[in-house]
Design a protein around this nucleic acid. Sequence first.
RNA 1: GAGUCGUUAGCUCAGCUGGCAGAGCACCGGACUUUUAAUCCGGGUGUCGAGGGUUCGAAUCCCUCACGACUCACCA
Length: 493
Amino acid sequence: MPEEEILKQRIDKLMRLRAEEGFDPFRNDRWDRKQTLEEINRIYGSLEADCHAEGVEVVTAGRLMTIRRHGKASFATMEDETSRIQLYFQLDATGEKAYNFFRKWVDTGDILGVVGTPFRTRRGELTLQVTSYSLLSKALRPLPEKWHGLKDTEIRYRQRYVDLIANPEVRETFRKRSIIVKTFREVLERHGTMEVETPILSPLAGGANARPFITFHNALGVNLYLRIATELYLKRLIVGMLGRVYEIGKNFRNEGIDIMHNPEFTAMEVYWAYANYQDMMDLTEEILVACADALGSRKVTYQGTEISFEPPFRRATMVDLVKEYCGVDIESVTSDEEARKIGKAKGLEITGKETRFGILTELFENFVEEKLIQPTFVLGHPVEVSPLAKRNYDAPDYTNRFELFIYGKEVANAFSELNDPLDQRERFTEQLRKKTEGDEEAHVFDEDFVQALEYGLPPTGGLGIGIDRLTMFLTDSRSIRDVILFPTMKPKS
RNA sequence: GAGUCGUUAGCUCAGCUGGCAGAGCACCGGACUUUUAAUCCGGGUGUCGAGGGUUCGAAUCCCUCACGACUCACCA
């Protein structure tokens, strides 16, 4: 039957229900639920087979997922946000009127409020013997098939509500995501960090190397950008003496979509005055371990590979890792020319403009990243690729920075913040030069940010963690779309 | 942006070298007072993603387009 036909039939049934019974299933505006199905399962789980909890009456509610009608007695499976339970409707227990109403008017997908007595059937299933019930809302569209669930990715992502109804494990994934975000807040608050909100719309999109979305403000008559990072505003707040701040929110990057990237994604950024990147490494470890613990285990299986969140995570410099995985010791390379030759021999595409630090980064990205399966802190990125990080004063070509890799993917990025306004101005100038050379992702020059630094930014440690990716690893989700409730989709024309 | 694969009933899927569009679940009608993928009897409900072409004949072959998944590129 075409879906529109089923819909028509159900609407017709709704009209008849209103006319024949004088009952509108949408009239109820509340149901005084006393127990969730999880609570009922827990409390009455020890009932023995063929035993009733005499004199007990529970009041609960949920969606009917399946109905098995058999004459003067019927079974149904009801599900709520916590669990599921079997319902037993029996003519003798509900009375004839209520039983016939159930037979005639109640469909799968409907939302029911139920009053009943727990018992265990002869076959051993905990069940509610329904004594009375109320039809709280009606489903006019059919549920996906009960056995196979809903698999069609397009419907799952476009109509997530159907996915959530049909696939309880999807609900579980998003519950875990919520626990992860909550754990972030708990750890940060424990360290006296204040949650703030900075602009999503702003005249400049800085703080990262990425292409922004552009929009237009009618009243101001100007273009505004959706933020690509929260970094520059949060550091202004450290200048402004807020001490320790963090923000959890969406960033927007106008780039490709694949299993690791969605145009809008959630990041947590935190900045601590008087701290450095080492402190941020400890904090990262603390947050990730807390998240793993909150979900039950420090050992998780991701796509068949075991990942251990047991601290301490490995810490290694980019230079050492390139030595280890590529056999290239960049410190013994003294000229850019020599570095380019080595890069070319390793199969890199060479334009002739690369410095030895650029080659180092390329070697790392092409040959090392994918090998870093267990959580690994990679330290000491070149200044060249770190326009906002403080220089390492003992090795001025490198920064006090780290990135955390898990399963070959970047999950966190942190550094001691560059607080020298003169150096920052030079770095922005260098980015501007790259931009004029055609690098669309070079960092914008943010004059106001430099001005903020000129008022004095204390030594500051900053950290960003990609919450979607971390959630993927902790929930064994293959695609970022499986941890974003409503992923970005092309509209159906 | 490029390549590969996919799109058939509400859902999950068959449909062979071109020859009457199918199954299970769901749905509709009936029987049934402990079933649980309930069972039994009856009912097939479709713009085969869209458009065009080849052919006596197209779900099937060809072309274009749309959407999705994956791989690559950019990126976190």
